[in-house]
Design a protein around this nucleic acid. Sequence first.
RNA 1: GGGAGAGUGGUGGAAUUGGUAUACACGACGGACUUAAAAUCCGUUGCCGUAAGGCUUGAGGGUUCGAGUCCCUCCUCUCCCACCA
Length: 805
Amino acid sequence: MNKYDPVKTEAKWTKIWHQTNLNKTPEEVKDKFYNLVMFPYPSGNLHIGHWYNFAPADTLGRFSKMHGKDVLEPFGYDSFGLPAENAAIERGLMADKWTDQNIADMTKQMNKIGAMYDWDKTLKTSDPNYYKWTQWMFLKLFQDKKAYQKDGLVNWCPNDKTVLANEQVVNGECDRCGSAVERKNLKQWYFKTTAFADALIDDLDSIDWSDKIKEMQRNWIGRSVGAHINFAIDGSNEKLQVYTTRPDTIYGVTFMVVAPEHPLVSEITSEDQSKEVNNYIAEVGAKTNIDRMETKEKTGVFTGAYAVNPATNQNVPIWISEYVLMEYGTGAIMSVPAHDERDYEFAKKFGLEINQVIEGGTIEDQAHVSSGKLINSGEFDGMDSDEAKQKITTWLESKNIGQKQTNYRLRDWLISRQRYWGTPIPIIHCDNCGVVAVPEKDLPVVLPLDQKFGKDGRSPLLDNEDFLNVKCPDCGDDAKRETDTMDTFVDSSWYFLRYPNPHYQDGPFDPVAVKRWLPVDRYIGGAEHAVLHLMYARFFTKFLHSKGHLDFNEPFTKLINQGMIDGPDGKKMSKSKGNVINPDDYVDKYGADSVRMYLMFMGPYEDGGPWDPKRFEGTHRFVNKIWEMITSSYSEISVDSAVEAELESKLHKLIKKVTEDVPNVRFNTAIASMMEFVNYASSVKLKGEVSANQWNIVVNTFTKVLAPFAPFLSEELWEKLGNHESVHAQAWPIYDENLVKDDVLTIIIQINGKLRDEFLVNSEDAFYQDELERMAKEKLGDKLAGIEVIKTIVVPGKLVNFVVR
RNA sequence: GGGAGAGUGGUGGAAUUGGUAUACACGACGGACUUAAAAUCCGUUGCCGUAAGGCUUGAGGGUUCGAGUCCCUCCUCUCCCACCA
């Protein structure tokens, strides 16, 4: 018996596919399928998580290709980022050399996966030919005032020594290194993501993403509709503007709270309260984000000032407290303790007045938060909250002290980083002209390579005179370059536009190629990017669309989020736990196809799960079983036409099942049905019950079904079966509806819904209800004697149910 | 505290519109081959019961001829957000 030799086979076909240009992307495109996986960071080692990402995605691509689709399946690298810089600092390497070596290593490993990548369509974001256009994107945003500089409180990671975007702070910690994030006042570059806040929410309805991810984006953007209201301050000309979603409760406002950082605080604070107020501000200012989050109990200080409730004309005290955030709304709130839990807690703690204005609840015990009928609200008494919100807002507008206002939790994207290994921000600072954009013709602003780092990790750009010193493009005087680089998420926000023609020189992307291939039909990647990359890429697409560069406004039509592969112990893989699975160990021993098959068979793609070496063995056994079944010789022993019909029917059922499962990423059930088929076909073969001719047709067809899953194995089998053209260039087999239908159906017999018996019936008779009932009665025979049948339910082709007393 | 999702054998997991629950695989047990082991192959395997039979999809209730699937209450777990006014 000749045994399947994956190592030899895979090397052989890798070479042949390369020589025959099998994976070249078609130029003539009729029915496109842009099959994209989120590109990886070149960390240097392809781990099993990468395999889980790319191998099933490739099955989808190959499956589509066999269906006659023109498939674009590119691969590249998100190659700017901190790990390269850390390697440079810690080990004295060059960040660029380290990165390029990793790319070379990973590309070698990537070739083992058996994917249909067209290596002509590759890119890396650290390539000047690429980041030139990232800088171009910055300039376009800058020209449109959607890239701007702002002074303010920012998140600072003391370990990575850079600022972070809001999205990159998780539970008060840096999402890269886990350090506690500090708050600093710094001038930084931002992209105006909030300009597209509405579109980012509304257009979610038009794309095929999981509800989970869509909901996460909606929550992150956090749209809320309410009103701005200006409160007069007693004894001052200043107005205190607040944002509220509950204008219906304005008669219940008994105090105001402003954020400690609010600019009005210093102006309105009375002399006798100023010491206490200043102490409080200092105390809060010293806290980190984590400290702030840990503060459970409400704290605050009275400013000594009063505002006037415009509804009641009552004077209400103005307090400061850290529970009001300067970053959201106006940094000031009107407090309605009767109908807001936080205000209630605050009022109870500091003995402030509580006025109920919505009927119901037990205000003595807790805030009554739900909406309802208004009371104690003058002319608005008796109105429902929803109506009162409208009416009161209109009333405020008529008095010119308020208006309807929509607010978002989304903050503009902070994109500058005080790091070296990233795309330089194409800006020049000139003493005469201020902030000046680098002219387009001067792009790219080249990042100097071979830079040495000190132990402190200080960006070498800060000390690189050649880089720093430039002439101002406006006035020609000496000027300095911006030394911050861009967040690497900027690089990855538009890469999918460049893949169709990564060699294009006249712009960031080739408009003809983009028209041909975009938007992305399947986008596959981890759910951890729900509010990061996936939102940033949508923002870029919307911006480019608004400027007429793109004719679509959503980049990823259908999104698939694969799960995570854990270690055999069920825990997240990590070097320190010693539970990391190295795919090479398995690939070198069992072959890529077995790894691919196991990853797809282990469970639903969206769930992931632990890597189980035992179960892997099981899948590998299946691969060998296929090899044995197809390559060992077939001999007719006792040909049986009933078995021939059965085998043909099972083959067509298999085709149908796999055809339906793969587009829905149900790889596990597709493979299960292949196993079932092989089990049956093997037993037929052993007994030689079908003609050699039919057997030949069956194994040829089966090999085509197998092809997207196990590209090497199927190609070798295909050749052994005497075919000359690649199996991957074959058309997907079409199943015959008539053969999928069963000739004989099993009808079950129930009594009161419980299974009691069953019988077989020819499919053409299975839809005559009277006949089915008669047959069921006959089959049950004596069992029904003396029992009163009240009702009989007949489901044609399925069952007969006798309802008895 | 808010939002989303999920609970099925010893394990990963299958189950068209409500219509044979536990497909496929792992593990376990028994057997064949072997001096022996590995590999391979064959059988058994939801639970209780010798059997007939009964029970079974987190718990309880409901709708229905019939519920893993639909509705209500509760419990548990996972993920996301979190003083967002």
